[in-house]
Amino acid sequence: MSPSQHSESGGRRLDRRRFLTTAAIGGATIVGASALGGLDADAAFAEPMPSLDTAIPAAFAEGRIVAINRNVLDVAGSHGERYLIQLTNATSVWKLRTTTAEAIEVGDGLYARGAAMPDGTIAADAVWVNIVNVYVTIRGIAKDRLHLQHGSAEVVGHIVPDTTTASYLGGALTADLSKTRIGQEAQVLGAWRPADGNIDIARVSLGH
């Protein structure tokens, strides 16, 4: 993509955001405990919702991307399956953070959720690229990384400024990682790096 095309699409994106912001703040329904009155919260959860389009079966794909052709990801499943995954402008893309299809590369691993199309492809609602969620023990702490033990393997968890967050015993996610301790057990959700097998940390949930 040329720089001028890039700025043009960036401009369109900003215009779109401006339009959506006006709608989101101006014409919105306010939903909150006060707006709907005091609810018995435990009883408030809904009955299972039927799929919006019961004719379209839900689909899931898992594997490594072997090719990218325009908006279609060619994915080799880990157990010999092959998937063609269509991305649209309604497809959410996660790769360490919420991003766009341009961030996806050949060699990345992915999970995709969407709808099975009659032609055998999957129209993706959401794709999560390189996402991993591992149970680890913190073995070392440095300025820009955590040394993690995952099973018998040693993994480096990179701390990414403005992205990595921590949650202490279920508390709200915070950018403050200063309460991490060596020897602590933790769940690390992040983006796996295919090149070296290490992880860029999106969030670290700390236990006791």
Binding site: S78, G109, V132, N133, Y135, H150, Q187, W192
Partner: peptide, 16 residues
């Protein structure tokens, strides 16, 4: 509920 990967796939689930 949390999630985990398994089945000799990519990423950290190879060892799982």
């Amino acid at each position: 509920a949390t999630w985990f990967c398994c089945g000799n796939a990519w990423g950290s689930c190879g060892s799982a």
